[in-house]
Design a protein around this nucleic acid. Structure first.
Lengths: 254, 254
DNA sequence: AAGGCGGTTACGGTGTACGTAACACTCAGG
DNA sequence: CCTGAGTGTTACGTACACCGTAACCGCCTT
């Protein structure tokens, strides 16, 4: 029996592909028709039809050179979403507050599709700072984002950890057993500090945002260059983040 | 012959409806399945399938009570769009600058689907201020947004003006001939000031953003409460907006 | 001139996704 | 306690929307 495409019951594949196209354009601006078709493994006519419909509705825009970008309707939907998603709406001012006090970059990350996904951020006015980007994905196993794993129910946790752990730097944990031990430690202390696991010379601190039942909703994070971050700074970040996580939980109604 | 649905050649109606659903949720948060189906004139099973696919991709999220909101993927797409749409990316800091100097709300509006559409804004820190909202639509004929009409090519202009002009306040122009005369005046002086045409007690000033060939791209706008806006303020706004429009044009490469 | 590559069109067959109908469930009212 | 009017949901057979193939039209490069 062929194990390819489990057709995902009750999912309109036409709409599904159209969303693929949309995300494709979002990810790589000025992408061409052929490139999209190739990367999605679809035929050109099909993608052309998708793009035409998306263009007519202002979701994408075609440049004179035949490349595609997102359009104005995408902005409208996006800003509406920022106000509709409680987590982001609540977290944004709190992220800014922490970011101002720490004078470093802060992020809000959730689990999405087996990865961590940045859905809100704040960057301080400072010449040198960690660069964050809404929509950027990272493996769950690397960096301090692994708090997201640590506070998961044990069964889904092991299920969420892939067979082979991707290596981003020489400090990245790639041994499953070692990772699980680390996760235990994190769950006990309530936070995670990571040194150069995802990027060299970067230190990252994360604290989980928990729901009323103790399930993990998201993680708040401070990222900073290692050279200017003392042990005392890290401790300060942890306190700031714990406070922030508590506020966000409260803001969500718990 | 039936004049209903000209099937819009090469437009996937399945995708089309799905976008309707998405915009529906964007416009009215916490909307229910039945309500969407009713407002779009579609059947419930169809909309259910759409929502399910959208939900699986994180575009919308279903609450426990069965209502729908936009989801995290919508945020990702939206923020990507803000950086990809040149006009918005360029205009945003300029809008803020003008807004700070005027200490009033500023907007960037384009023509979309026969209406004016707000795609960027700035609101000053001030207790009482005009409220702007990205995605909000207004008739092209009312308020100072009519600069968008004024700088259109004459043939498309008349084609863009509807048969009957909607009345928003008692000051709204509802006579076609009068409107066209007004548009001539606006085109000559290069800006438009409107007193209470779209909202009572509000004054609004708009200046067109022109492309290298003189075609109109967008309009920049200052909106303020009438009671605190002197003639001299209006003049100041005009200067600020003209400068802003010039900068935006330049930023777009002209 | 020939070939490659991008985008586009045409068209006929098929399988996706459509609507109908019936189903569960909750709530309000009689 | 039943009934009716709301939800949202499932099942299913049919039709047509949409798909892929193939051919086409530029535009480059060789």
């Amino acid at each position: 029996m062929p194990l390819e495409k489990a057709p995902e019951r009750d999912v309109l594949q036409s709409v599904n592909v159209c969303l693929d196209v949309l995300l494709s354009v979002a990810q790589t601006p000025d992408v061409r028709l052929t490139e999209i078709a190739r990367s999605l493994g679809e035929t050109k006519p099909r993608i052309l039809r998708m793009l035409r419909t998306l263009e007519r509705r202002g979701l994408v825009r075609k440049s004179d050179e035949g490349t595609y970008r997102l359009g104005t309707t995408a902005i409208v939907i996006g800003t509406a979403a920022s106000t509709q998603v409680d987590l982001v709406r609540i977290a944004n001012p709190i992220l800014e507050e922490v970011g101002q006090k720490a004078n470093e970059t802060t992020q809000l990350r959730i689990i999405d599709n087996g990865e961590s996904l940045c859905i809100a951020k704040f960057e301080p006015m400072r010449d040198l700072r960690v660069q964050a980007m809404i929509g950027r994905r990272r493996p769950l196993s690397a960096g301090s984002y692994k708090v997201l794993l640590a506070f998961l129910h044990p069964q889904v946790q092991t299920q969420m950890i892939p067979e082979v752990l991707p290596r981003l730097t020489k400090r990245t944990i790639t041994d499953r057993a070692k990772l699980i031990a680390e996760l235990d430690k994190i769950r006990n202390q309530g936070f995670c500090v990571s040194y150069g696991e995802v990027s060299e010379q970067l230190v990252s601190v994360s604290v989980p945002v928990l729901a009323f039942d103790g399930s993990v909703i998201a993680a708040v994070n401070v990222g900073a260059p290692a050279f200017r971050t003392q042990r005392s700074d890290v401790d300060r970040f942890i306190l700031l983040l714990k406070d922030a996580a508590r506020k966000i939980s409260a803001g969500l109604g718990w």
